[in-house]
Design a binder for these strands. Structure first.
Lengths: 222, 222
DNA sequence: GCAAAAGTGTTATCCCTACACCCATGA
DNA sequence: TCATGGGTGTAGGGATAACACTTTTGC
């Protein structure tokens, strides 16, 4: 089977930086490449775009293949097209990033741990292709969005405590926050409500649990 | 001459929304298509990405072909890849936008006015392909950036007055601004300086001229 | 009872907004 | 001299930032 064109065509892929919070750290899903090029090296999950599917559909498909998850936040990041970014042929990659709540993680990523794994963003190995650049840009974008949107809640589980939420903010933006001011700021957004439950988690006062009002909405604030 | 691949490849184009301020209005450059599909309709300038050139290079090339300009602000906008966005074959378009200072406009766009033209953004004709969507997204991005960056100065000529600058802001963001507050805000950015010259332009007090300190720098503010 | 983390209010500061009159020019 | 648009300062309000002690639990 061969496909012929009257002028040269590049290949087009999607690559996805999939983030979650695990063990109090921001982590990204990486895959160990089974085929050359860069065989044995870690890379962002991705693959070729089908001729009949949209870019977002391709991204969803890859995301689901790797994580089993579907209802998560997915956003187009940037398109990388340096002529030599893939040694095989000209490959243009449309990069996406996804945010997955910690409690939606499926076993998939853990099951065959040899070739799929979560990596804390301050312990990223060498990456294949230009995936380091993609990851860096994704982190920049997400961190920036924390400051002017309610994107952070896309990383939170069904119920969560205020200190947990604050921790996510601090991990992502790398700046410590005053907990009283943080609490006021979050509550004034009107996107979360207390569940009435509490989380008892050790030798200290229990924390009140909150829940997101509308999981599918990401507001632009200010 | 034919190019053969073992699996199907899409075509990849760049399309550019080129903005400038002309006649006190925000305008975009459009091209009347000489070939089908959409022959005779207006479209954003664009073209196929060469196999050996980067995406940005392709955008620069198209930009220069149409405007003769090279030193302007150019930013990747979004990649559009709906499977049916082009009736010929699968075409994925990496969209860019460019901002050109009004005094850098070359004669090119005016010379053969039949097939190239500047259109005020509130008088855009029907556009070919999904170019309306691209243009809308470009306008959203630029307007948003006006509020958190110094991107506005990319539209200003070598020297300009404060009322001119304010007008650009008002045209772009669609909100009237108090001129005293505006002046303070602009000066506090520390990116412009008075030239010492004045602009005499009618039966009224002359306006002081300003110049951008570093034309190539676009700051992220706040 | 003690260590550990959660919860809670008030004050000061800064930034943004609102607002009105005089000035320089060309006709 | 008059019409036109350019230039200038201050005061109030709202949002943000700084800051310390009490509460609840498990061991």
């Amino acid at each position: 089977m061969a496909y012929t064109y009257s002028y040269p065509h590049p290949a087009v892929t999607v690559d996805i930086a999939i983030f979650t919070i695990r063990d109090d750290a921001l982590q990204v899903l990486l895959i160990k490449r089974a085929q050359p090029p860069y065989r044995g090296e870690w890379a962002l999950p991705g693959g070729f775009v089908g001729l009949e599917e949209s870019l977002k559909h391709a991204a969803w498909r890859e995301l689901k293949e790797e994580t089993g998850v579907n209802a998560v936040y997915l956003e187009q990041l940037f398109t990388f097209g340096h002529p030599q970014r893939d040694p095989r042929e000209r490959v243009i990659s449309v990069a996406y990033f996804a945010l997955i709540p910690s409690d939606k993680l499926q076993i998939k990523a853990a099951s065959d741990a040899a070739d799929v794994g979560w990596f804390s963003i301050d312990a990223i190995p060498e990456l294949a292709f230009d995936h380091k650049k993609i990851l860096t840009k994704a982190l920049e974008r997400v961190a920036a969005k924390f400051n002017y949107s309610t994107i952070a809640f896309q990383l939170m589980p069904e119920t969560f405590t205020m200190p947990q939420l604050q921790h996510v903010y601090e991990v992502m933006t790398q700046v410590p926050i005053d907990k009283r001011n943080f609490r006021k700021r979050m509550l004034s957004l009107n996107v979360i409500e207390p569940t009435g439950e509490e989380s008892r988690a050790g030798a200290h006062r229990p924390a009140k649990l909150y829940r997101v009002l509308d999981r599918n909405k990401v507001d632009h604030i200010k």
